[in-house]
Design a protein around this nucleic acid. Structure first.
Lengths: 236, 236
DNA sequence: ATCTGAAATCTGATATACCAGATGTCACAA
DNA sequence: TTGTGACATCTGGTATATCAGATTTCAGAT
């Protein structure tokens, strides 16, 4: 292939649009219902009606059904054939979602410590530095974003697509709740020091330490969320 | 409420039928497609067509779509809106499914060690005893069933419904492949001794040991499966 | 007062038609 | 030869109608 466009008439370089970007009714419905369940809008055991939901959203039952099947696979609801869909999410479920996330994140941290390269490691440490600044200034929204960057970076470094995807589903709190936590200086400081030590362990290549630290971090911060959302402590 | 039926005319006591027992088209299709994907019937990246599947199964596209949404949530396929459904399962995905299972099973073993009661512990040890007999006699099918009993028992002892459910989805091999493994005396013996030590750790209440043993067990046996299914070894 | 069971009704399950974005084809112009 | 763009076509997305199991209601029998 001949090299084109050298010098003059350079075109603007746009990035390819991710096909998954497109938002379908199903996707919208999925997010809305999932979020509602996780925020406790339904009582455990409560039945939800596909037709009613369709009416509320102003769509047909088809996207509702597909969305419910996804939520069912996540374990948040249970479908009893020809009987109905029942909410399964509960405080206990939330506890276990934290445990699942702890187990998976620690596994991925372990692998990241083994697989991360120099450049990526430097980026991770740089992220922690930025976090330190944000922690001091108390910018909650910025911290939330950085937190995501931090964990995403570790996920990528582990080169585990499936595990990363699985972890995404183990989150039962949203940005509004995270903000509450990040507004507390003590909590902010705790999270920062944990992130720092996790990053160090990963960059150093100490897989076992990274694993242990990550697990404790997820469980501890998870407990804090549990306390906020359900007003109680976990009993492990 | 008045106590009825004392003495005479006792009715036959039937167990309640689990509503989830009923098999719908969707459920059948879900299992069939999932199993086909996991057994390697489709190449990674290959596109599958909802209409074609509907024709093959002789049903409409509705149950197909719902089943695909479930499989998508499991991460085995990816749906690109208005473009198509593509297979995502690959040897790497299988490796990660093992890792996920190892992480989750070890977490659940940890909890089981902390929560199991005397009676349940005795049952677990009894199961191992039976496994010992079956291992000696080489009854592969019996061993497969016992294996399931063993892990289920641990799941129940941990009192974790969500985690147990999550683990179920991390299995990429079916009974026919398990049989192959259980026909190998060396492998059988290895599995037995691992099961025995896991059971002991759990009954003793040594959570950390149980966790470590379970993790190694899942990873090791998982590697064996990987070798059989894909003819290669994992590179952790 | 209580039990029985037919009928009304509720709910999810499935089939079908049609919509709309994505892609491929190919005649036609430059 | 090459690039353009209308158009045929492929694919999933959505709406709607209908099917069938599950549940409830309630009149009629005991």
């Amino acid at each position: 292939m001949i090299e084109a466009k050298q010098g003059v008439a350079r075109e603007a370089a746009f990035k390819k649009i991710d096909p998954a970007f497109q938002v379908t009714m199903r996707d919208h419905v999925y997010r809305a219902i999932r979020s509602a369940i996780l925020s406790g809008a339904f009582a455990t055991g409560e039945r939800i009606n596909e037709r009613h939901l369709a009416e509320q959203f102003g769509v047909s039952t088809t996207p509702i059904k597909e969305a419910l099947r996804q939520i069912e696979t996540e374990g948040l609801v249970e479908t009893l054939p020809r009987r109905g869909v029942a909410i399964r999410f509960s405080p206990q479920w939330a506890e276990e979602m934290i445990l699942a996330r702890a187990a998976l994140e620690s596994m991925i941290a372990h692998l990241a410590a083994k697989r991360i390269d120099k450049a990526s490691g430097a980026e991770l440490l740089a992220t922690v530095d930025i976090m330190e600044t944000a922690t001091a200034s108390g910018d909650a929204d910025r911290l939330i974003a950085l937190n995501e960057t931090f964990h995403d970076h570790i996920h990528r470094s582990s080169r585990c697509g499936y595990l990363a995807k699985l972890i995404e589903r183990q989150q039962f709190y949203d940005a509004s709740i995270r903000r509450i936590i990040h507004l507390d200086p003590t909590e902010r400081q705790k999270a920062l020091s944990e992130h720092a030590s996790i990053a160090e362990a990963i960059v150093t290549g100490d897989a076992d330490l990274a694993e242990r630290l990550m697990r404790n971090h997820v469980v501890r911060s998870g407990d804090t969320y549990l306390g906020i959302v359900f007003g109680k402590q976990k009993n492990i």
